[in-house]
């Protein structure tokens, strides 16, 4: 069990940067009074970020992943979150076996 000082410094730097991003919004929040298009853009932040994180997996990995993502999206319109996840995982296993 050893903690390399350089590695520990890197981890602490990552932690400090991350904590700063997490609390930055607390200081910004009072100054953001959004309406119209700006409000619409702000409301789009959650889906936009979530999509950007998974887009490489969904669109640039393989046919099985892309198809499974569409199956999962279809499931998401009908099922609660856990059901959606189960459908997603099962469909990717089947599609990978089928499409290689």
């Amino acid at each position: 069990m050893s903690l390399d000082p350089v590695a520990l410094t890197a981890i602490l730097a990552m932690a400090a940067v991350t904590y700063a991003t997490r609390i930055a919004g607390i200081f910004l929040a009072g100054r953001l009074a959004l309406r119209g298009r700006a409000a619409s853009a702000f409301e789009a932040i959650p889906p936009s970020v979530l999509v950007a994180v998974i887009a490489p997996t969904v669109l640039a990995t393989g046919k099985a992943e892309t198809t499974a993502a569409f199956v999962t999206a279809l499931a998401a319109t009908r099922l609660p979150l856990l059901g959606t996840v189960v459908v997603g995982v099962l469909s990717v296993v089947i599609l990978r076996a089928w499409l290689g």
């Binding site: 998974i54 993502a69 979150l81 959606t84 996840v85 099962l90």
Partner: peptide
């Protein structure tokens, strides 16, 4: 086991929750 796909599946489910 397809466990790696749990991550995008969760995100797709969350995106559906934000649908407008």
């Amino acid at each position: 086991l397809g466990a790696d796909f749990a991550f995008p599946a969760v995100f797709i489910g969350l995106i559906a929750g934000f649908w407008k």
